[in-house]
């Protein structure tokens, strides 16, 4: 039996309530294929049996697995390239100057998936900024709704298909060790980043202010009021003079006026309105 009707509605409402992800009514096939493989993994006869189980009595662990199965985790190294070029050429040199007093650099990947985004920054820092940030306190953080993704990111273990995606070969051989069919990030990079679970649509626990916030390819799944709420919260988490980066198909324009777009190189960053120059 396939997931449909009332059960589909149940899943869509659960996903929207807990993650704010808006699942179109036409996504029945996706719900069905993703939950069928989860049901198989967990030893349920099929997806409908698993959902019946969940609807009868609350089971937070199962609920989390269902929610995680419904999120898209696709990510890659140096995604879209231009933002990372801009970080290398303009943003990081600027932060090296402006932060010379405190000698602290804080960067947060707010929906980090399996970690490629924040580790791309770690690779950039290692390859191009080792001297300029020598002796600095550098805090690289990644958070995600998914427990599974947080675990994967912390492990820093990637398949060949994953290292093929956007990672220059010279960086691959320099920063990874082959481990069976996979590739493990060397401790020199892996130890630079820390990861924890965080749901962007629930109240945020206290955090430091970040010099760079990467909030990429996650707002696309939210409705406008949720986008606004998350952007507001992110703007409050930016250090003075900080930078916010969104995904290629995302914008804060018309949603969060305190965030002002600024074209840097070939990428668009957002800065806080009225910040001191």
């Amino acid at each position: 039996m396939t997931v449909g009707g009332e059960q589909l509605l149940f899943v869509r409402q659960l996903v929207q309530r807990k993650t704010a992800i808006v699942l179109g009514e036409d996504k029945g096939y996706l719900v069905d294929s993703r939950l069928s493989s989860l049901a198989r993994d967990l030893g349920h006869a099929d997806a409908t049996t698993m959902l019946d189980h969940l609807r009868k009595k609350p089971d937070l662990a199962l609920e989390q697995r269902v929610l995680e199965a419904m999120t898209t985790n696709e990510t890659l190294w140096f995604r879209d390239r231009a933002p990372f070029e801009a970080l290398r050429q303009h943003v990081l040199p600027e932060l090296a100057r402006s932060g010379a007093g405190s000698r602290q650099l804080r960067i947060w990947s707010a929906a980090c998936s399996s970690g490629q985004e924040i580790y791309s920054i770690a690779v950039l820092l290692e390859e191009h900024f080792a001297d300029r940030f020598a002796g600095w306190k550098i805090d690289l953080a990644g958070t995600d709704f998914s427990v599974e993704m947080v675990k994967r990111a912390s492990e820093g273990l990637y398949s060949t298909l994953e290292v093929n995606r956007g990672l220059p070969a010279a960086s691959l051989v320099r920063h990874f060790d082959r481990e069976g069919a996979n590739w493990r990030l060397k401790p020199s990079i892996r130890s630079r980043a820390r990861f924890w679970r965080m749901n962007l649509v629930e109240p945020w626990a206290p955090m430091p202010a970040w010099d760079i916030v990467l909030l990429r390819n996650v707002l696309i799944y939210f409705d406008i009021p949720t986008k606004e709420k998350v952007l507001r919260a992110a703007s409050r988490q930016m250090a003075p003079g900080g930078y916010l980066l969104l995904g290629g198909a995302e914008t804060a324009v018309g949603i969060c006026p305190e965030l002002v777009p600024e074209k840097i190189g070939d990428a668009t960053f957002y800065r806080l309105e009225g910040r001191e120059q």
Binding site: V22, G24, K27, N217, I220, D223, A249
Partner: peptide
């Protein structure tokens, strides 16, 4: 748009 399965 492969990541946009759920984009609405």
């Amino acid at each position: 748009d492969s990541t946009n399965d759920f984009a609405h």
